[in-house]
Every structure is written in structure tokens, then in C-alpha cells.
Design a protein around this nucleic acid. Structure first.
Lengths: 335, 335
DNA sequence: AAAATAAGTGTTATCGATAACTCAAAATTA
DNA sequence: TAATTTTGAGTTATCGATAACACTTATTTT
């Protein structure tokens, strides 16, 4: 491996001079600068960022932790985060928890041992608290994405879960639906709680009661689990519409409905949070509350970098990005 | 930051003893081992992997370079690679080139300065040659994914582009189509060349001629570019079917068709390579040659790790994963 | 012209960990 | 019991880079 010492020797200077040329620090005569640069190119020198990090006590690596790499919401978010990080001269270490606390913990340990400069963190749920405290203990700045964690003060980028849910459910109510089921995430995730609360509010504002037997909880990425749907269609008074708390749960519901010979929207209307990235071009079908995924990532990364570089005010910032109701063909008026 | 010296001092031993406890090397009495471990836990010690990498000359970081993080083919592949890497005790540094040579080069520089132990590399095209030579020059092992590069000898994991394309086009021919267009990737990508060659072979085997004015080239991820489709529908003898060389190009084509009031498959049949991950559950619509994306990642990572750890034979291996023809509802017989 | 300052470069210590070597005490062997 | 081996540590050098300081020569200033 080529090091600054190899360069130094061949250029007839000290290692320190090479370091100065690389970093554009100190005073170097134009002649030696040129000479050193020429040798660096000849030997195809690439700085060893580990050695540099060790002495500088910073890595210029940021980490992005998402909960489901196969969810288009998160990949689009990742693109936003990536663009913002690269633009600011940071490398990005992706991590994917699969909504699994143990995997999340593994990645947090990795971040700590890598000594990343900061983390853009989409937590799996309230129990992520421990992992976040771990980061705090080691003074690693982070920004929370998409989900709030009770007990953690941090910069936040959130969607308008409650309002979005309310809009979706109100849309169903306007279409005449009265028995509206909800397939929700597990209640230890803040977005699940808020979306439920929006669901509830829509009912109450319209003078309807909430029937909790129509509210089912499942892991946000277990779209293969059809038991939620079974519980609903075998209900003694089955729903006429379903509100899925995210896109994956909607996919699961629709898949299960299809298997059972039920059609959307003929037999049931379906709405959900989040859309499907590029692929819903194929068949813009589901009525959704669409969140600005790219912005989640870009803005979150910006907040993180500001905090790392000390440009952020002391107090924590909470950004709420609005979602947009896109009415498509998975809903129809109740006949 | 807590270091082994802090541990050593508090435990009343030398730093070397701590290092031995951490790595389970050398001889340590059970008593001191316990004492050191206790102190490590008390102080929440996390090893600094940079310092370790510096002396060990290996990082235990592998990199996965994909060309489009928003393409479900690549995110599923990424899951496969991630699982295999973590299982073998490596960290994974994701990189996303967006089919852009300059971005790819930036990421390669990053990999070099991070001194990753190996790279799972989906190249943007034949011009990736330079970036790969750069890796070779610095003795970083890599495995090529999805695309072959003339001039590079390496382990390879490929799909059966030619056969897959032939099967798709033969399906169209069986349905009676005679004027079949192809929207292909740029010809400096091996899969584009092979898929064209399968397209050609299907025609010739059926005694049909190939009309190159029906073959259009576009960047594999520019699904927004509608000019390809315009060229086809304004052709003096327009096609009755379209073969898109990957899923993104198909999305672009269908979107453009829809905007122009044309319906699939009524007005044109459409087939493509790759499917759409979870999301095609929503509406299994496109007839595709489905590739085992997860296996691409898992198998590629396995080959890479074997090579790094010296378990691979000298000669390079070339794995070809078969694709599966899934006939759905985007194709119909020509009337 | 002497004193003060600036320019250009080199020396040494350091970041946190491990390899290679050393060494005393305990255990084993002859 | 003396010689040898094993056990359980410690010392020192090193990985590749940079910070802090030192030290010549120029160059300015008075």
C-alpha cells in the first residue's frame, strides 16, 4: 500500500509536507506542491481514511438506518439522504433493521465501533429507546425519522400521521362507509398510535362511534400475514372498507382479499398511508396519503449535518412534512 | 472515549491483556479475564474498529455497489447480500451509482480510502472498466453482478439474459405478434447486448426478420424519458408489442402509453425483464422474465467472501441464474 | 544594519489497537 | 532438587496520518 511516507521519500520531502499538500494547510512553496502532487499521481496514492480518522477523531461517515429496505418509501428516502450526505462531503453507511429490534441493536453496535459522525435513525419502535440512549452515551448525534420515541429529545422529521389518517378515513366516510376497519402497526410505534388517533378523530367528528374490534395490529412489514384480514372478514359484522396504516399492510390486505375472491373496490374499499414509488405508475390504483419520502431523507440529513457541524441551535427541531391525499380507484361509494 | 487503556488502568492490568481478553487470544487466567470483562461492561467499552483495522490491515467492511436503489430488483438483491455479509461477520457499506459513471467513480474512491475488504460490484457499463482496474491495482477483490465487463477477469453472477429475452419474445411471437419493438438499455451494457441477441434469436428461429428501426436504446433507469415510445408509435409501421429490457423501461413505456390514451394489452402487448418485488402483488399485471434477485446478492456475497478468505479456487467462477417466464395480463393474442 | 517577522519545511508525539518479543513465577519433568 | 516447560502477564514497535512545536532562511521593518 502506498503511504505518505512513500510519497515523501520519492519527492524528497518529509511526510508532514505531503500531508500539508493533501490537506491544503500550512505554507508550501508552489514548486514543492507541484512536485509532491506529481509523485502522488504517479504512485496512484489514496489517503487511508482510517489513519486519518484515528487522529482527527471524526470519520466523515454518517449512517442511515431504515426499517425496511424493500419498502419504496424508505428507498426513496434513502436517495434523499444519500444526495444530501454526498453533497456535504460525507460517506453514507446504510443499515436496514427489517423492523427487528435485535438487528437494529447489531447495527447500532457497528455504528459505535465505526465511530460514525452521526446517524439518521428510523427507529423500529418505542423499545428503540435503549439503542438511542446508547448513541447518546457515546455522544453520537442523531436525527429521528418518521417515528417519535418517548423519552428521547432529538431533532425530528415526521409525517402528519394524524391528519393524514383523518383525511383518509373522512374520505371513506364521505363515500358512505360506516364500518371501517383499520389494519395498524404495533402500538409501540408512534405513527401507529397517531394514525389510530386520526382514525378515531374522523369517526368522532362525523358523529360515528369507534368499534375497536375492527382495529387490528400487525408488524409494519409483515405483509405476508393474512390473519389480520381473516379476522376482519369473519367478523360478525364485517367492514365495508379498510384503512391500512402503511403501504406494506395494504399490499398484504389486498393480496389476501384477492386470494379469497374478494375484489377491491367492488367488495371492499381500501386506503393506506404511503405510496409505492415508481412502481405505482404501473397501475395507479390505491387511494393513499402520499408522503414526501425524498424530502424526509434530504431534510433529515440536513438537520443532522447542521447539528454535527455545530450550526444548529441548541434546542431540538421538529419538522412535520404534510402528506397528500391521492384519490384513485381503490375506493368507491357504498351502494 | 473509552479505550483499552482506560480499561487496563481500572482493571490493574496492561493494555495488551485487555486486547487479549477482547480477542480471546493468548493465555489469560480466568480471574483476570472476568475482572477485565467486568470493567469493560461497567465503562460501556466499544472497540475502535479504525484503530484495529489500521494495524490488522483489514476492515471487515464489504461494499455493495448497485446501480439503482429504487429498482426493486436491486433492493431485493441488497437484502440477499446484506444477510450473507452479516452472517459471515462483515459490515456492509452500500453504494448507489444511479447508472452514472461519475457517481460510480466517486464511490470507488471512497471504497479505496475506506480500504474495504472487498466489493460486490454491479457496474454501470463497459466503461466501468477503469474503476475496476483501479480496484485491481489496489488489490481489492470484487465480484461482478448482473453485468459482464470485457477486459475484466473476475467471479461473476449473471442472469440468463439471452435465454430470458428469447423466451419473452417467443411468447409474443406465439401470440401472433410480428412487429415487436425493443426498448433496450445502452449498448455498452452487457445485459443490453445479450437481451438484444435473445430478441434477435427469437426472430430468426421463427423465420422472422429483425427490423432494427424498432430497437431503441435508453439508459436503464431513465423511465421518465418518453421519447423512446414516441419514436415507436410514430413509426410508419408501428409495433404491436414492446419488449422492455428491464422493469424501469417497462414502467416508462406503460406510463407514456397511458398518457397517449393507449391501453395495455388492448392496443399493445408489453413484456419485460425483472419483476417488481413486493409491489406487483398489488396488481400482477406485467408479463415478465423474473430473476431471482435475492439469490444474486446472496450468492455473489458468498463468492466474494470465499475469495477474500482464500477459500476460492484460483480460477474465476461464472454463475448463471435462470429467469422464469411469468405470463400475466399485459400480453394478448394479436387479433 | 540590527531586529522583527514571515515563509517553508522538518521532528516528535499521538490517535487506539495488536504483533512480536520478553520475562518472571508456577508447574512439570528428569 | 535442578532443569525444563508452561502459564500469565508486560514492553516496545507499529499501522498511516496529523497537531504542535521547532528551526532555518528569506524578507520586512525600523
Amino acid at each position: 500500500m502506498i503511504t505518505i511516507y512513500d510519497i515523501a521519500e520519492k519527492a524528497g520531502v518529509s511526510a508532514m509536507t505531503v500531508s500539508r499538500v493533501i490537506n491544503n494547510t500550512g505554507r508550501i512553496s508552489e514548486a514543492t506542491r507541484k512536485r509532491v502532487k506529481k509523485v502522488m499521481e504517479e504512485l496512484h496514492y489514496i489517503p487511508n481514511s482510517m489513519a486519518r480518522s484515528l487522529v482527527l477523531q471524526k470519520t466523515k461517515i454518517l449512517s442511515l438506518l431504515i426499517t425496511d429496505i424493500r419498502n419504496p418509501f424508505f428507498t426513496t428516502l434513502a436517495r434523499g439522504a444519500e444526495d444530501a450526505a454526498l453533497r456535504a462531503g460525507y460517506r453514507l453507511l446504510f443499515a436496514n433493521s427489517d423492523e427487528d429490534y435485535a438487528k437494529e441493536k447489531g447495527y447500532v453496535d457497528m455504528m459505535l465501533s465505526t465511530r460514525v459522525d452521526g446517524v439518521l435513525f428510523a427507529p423500529t419502535g418505542d423499545h428503540s429507546l435503549e439503542n438511542l440512549l446508547q448513541l447518546q452515551k457515546h455522544n453520537i448525534p442523531f436525527v429521528l425519522l418518521d417515528r417519535e420515541i418517548p423519552g428521547i429529545e432529538a431533532d425530528l422529521v415526521l409525517g402528519d400521521s394524524k391528519e393524514g389518517a383523518r383525511k383518509l378515513v373522512e374520505h371513506l366516510i364521505e363515500l358512505g362507509h360506516r364500518r371501517i376497519a383499520m389494519i395498524n402497526g404495533t402500538p409501540d410505534v408512534s405513527t401507529a398510535r397517531l394514525r389510530y388517533s386520526g382514525y378515531r378523530e374522523a369517526h368522532l367528528l362525523s358523529g360515528l362511534g369507534v368499534e375497536d374490534s375492527l382495529v387490528i395490529h400487525r408488524n409494519f412489514r409483515d405483509f405476508q400475514d393474512e390473519s389480520a384480514l381473516d379476522a376482519l372478514i369473519h367478523h360478525e359484522q364485517p367492514p365495508t372498507a379498510i384503512f391500512a396504516a402503511n403501504n406494506m399492510l395494504a399490499i398484504g390486505a389486498i393480496q389476501a382479499l384477492r386470494k379469497r375472491g374478494l375484489q377491491v373496490p367492488r367488495d371492499l374499499s381500501v386506503v393506506c398511508f404511503d405510496d409505492f414509488g415508481h412502481t405505482d405508475v404501473l397501475n395507479p390504483f390505491l387511494t393513499v396519503a402520499s408522503q414526501p419520502a425524498y424530502q424526509f431523507g434530504a431534510l433529515g440529513m440536513q438537520l443532522l449535518i447542521e447539528r454535527i457541524e455545530g450550526e444548529a441551535a441548541q434546542e431540538h427541531r421538529k419538522m412535520i412534512l404534510p402528506s397528500e391525499l391521492l384519490i384513485r380507484s381503490s375506493t368507491q361509494a357504498l351502494v
